[in-house]
C-alpha cells in the first residue's frame, strides 16, 4: 500500500490502466452479445460501386444503395457514375441480368457568354444563381439565359461544370450523370441527354426574334430553318424557340450549318468524342 500512495506515478498508471482494462472487458462482452449480423454481400456490393456518394440512384450514398440492392432486390442499373462496367459487375455478383441504359450527360441550353450576350446592370450580391433570380437575375439582359454565377458548378461532385467567361459549360467526358445540377438551375437550363446525341440547340430564350437579336448574338430567333431541315421531326418550334426532342434521333448536320445565329452546335457527349 505504501508503495502506491507514496508513488503518484505508479498510482496513476494503475488507476488509468485499470479503468482501461475494465472498459475493454465490457466492450469485448458487448461485442459478443450485441453483435448485429450484417449481410456480407452489402459490403461487397459497396466495394463494387464507385464511391462518389452522389445520390444519382436516389439513395443516400453508395452503401445505402448497396443495402437496398441486397435487401429490396432493387434493379442494379441505377448507378449512373459507374456506367456499364459497374452494372455488369454487380449483375454478375448478384446473378441477375441487368438492362443497360445509355449514359446520360448534362447539357446547358445556353451559349451566351459575356462576349456574346449583353449585360445591362452590375450585380453585387451573393454569387448564387437562386439568390440572383429572386431579384430578377444578375443583370444579364436575357432573362432566360445562364447567369454564370456557378451554382451548378459548385454542386457538381466531380467538377465537370466549368465557368467560362460568365457561362457554365459541361465537360461531357467528366460528367457522371448524377443529375444534381439539373435542380440547382433556377432558370431550368440543364437537361440530361443521351451521350450519343451530338447536335444541341443551345438556347432557351422565348423572346421574339428581334428582341433576341438586340441582346444576344447567339440566341435562337425562331427562324424555323432547323425545324424545316428535319421536317419538324425531332425539332419543334415552341414559344419562339426551336426545341430539340431528345427522344427522337436527329443526326442531320445540315441543322447546324443552316442556323444563322450559330445557336446549334455539334458537341458529342461520349468520352471519346469530347473535344
Amino acid at each position: 500500500m505504501d508503495l502506491l500512495t507514496g508513488n503518484p506515478i505508479l498510482l496513476q498508471t494503475v488507476i488509468i490502466g485499470g479503468t482501461g482494462l475494465i472498459c475493454a472487458a465490457i466492450l469485448a462482452i458487448a461485442a459478443r452479445f450485441l453483435h448485429v449480423h450484417e449481410d456480407p454481400r452489402i459490403e461487397a456490393v459497396t466495394a463494387l460501386l464507385p464511391g462518389v456518394n452522389c445520390g444519382a440512384c436516389g439513395y443516400a450514398g453508395c452503401s445505402d444503395y448497396a443495402k437496398h440492392i441486397i435487401l429490396d432486390a432493387l434493379p442494379v442499373n441505377l448507378c449512373s457514375p459507374g456506367g456499364e462496367a459497374t452494372v455488369r459487375k454487380i449483375a454478375a455478383f448478384m446473378g441477375v441480368t441487368a438492362t443497360l441504359t445509355e449514359r446520360q450527360v448534362a447539357v446547358i441550353l445556353c451559349k451566351g457568354d459575356d462576349a456574346l450576350a449583353t449585360r445591362t446592370t452590375l450585380y453585387n450580391g451573393i454569387a448564387d444563381c437562386g439568390a440572383a433570380q429572386q431579384i430578377g437575375g444578375n443583370g444579364k439582359a436575357c432573362r432566360y439565359g445562364c447567369m454564370g454565377l456557378g451554382s451548378c458548378a459548385r454542386i457538381c461532385p466531380v467538377g465537370a461544370i466549368e465557368l467560362v467567361n460568365g457561362l457554365a459549360v459541361v465537360h461531357p467526358d467528366l460528367c457522371i450523370s448524377c443529375g444534381r445540377c439539373v435542380g440547382t438551375c433556377p432558370r431550368r437550363l440543364i437537361k440530361m441527354v443521351p451521350e450519343s446525341r451530338f447536335i444541341h440547340i443551345l438556347c432557351s430564350s422565348q423572346d421574339a426574334g428581334p428582341d433576341v437579336r438586340k441582346i444576344c448574338k447567339v440566341g435562337c430567333i425562331a427562324c424555323t430553318l432547323c425545324a424545316k431541315v428535319v421536317n419538324g421531326v425531332g425539332i419543334t418550334m415552341r414559344n419562339n424557340l426551336a426545341v430539340m426532342d431528345y427522344s427522337v434521333p436527329v443526326t442531320n448536320e445540315e441543322t447546324i450549318t443552316k442556323c444563322p445565329q450559330l445557336t446549334i452546335v455539334k458537341r458529342s457527349g461520349t468520352k471519346e468524342g469530347a473535344a
Binding site: 450580391g125 451573393i126 448564387d128 437562386g130 439568390a131 429572386q134
Partner: peptide, 13 residues
C-alpha cells in the same frame, strides 16, 4: 455581408 439576401434566400428555401 449580404445578410438580407441570405435571409431572403433562406426564407424561400
Amino acid at each position: 455581408r449580404p445578410l438580407v439576401q441570405h435571409m431572403r434566400q433562406g426564407k424561400t428555401k
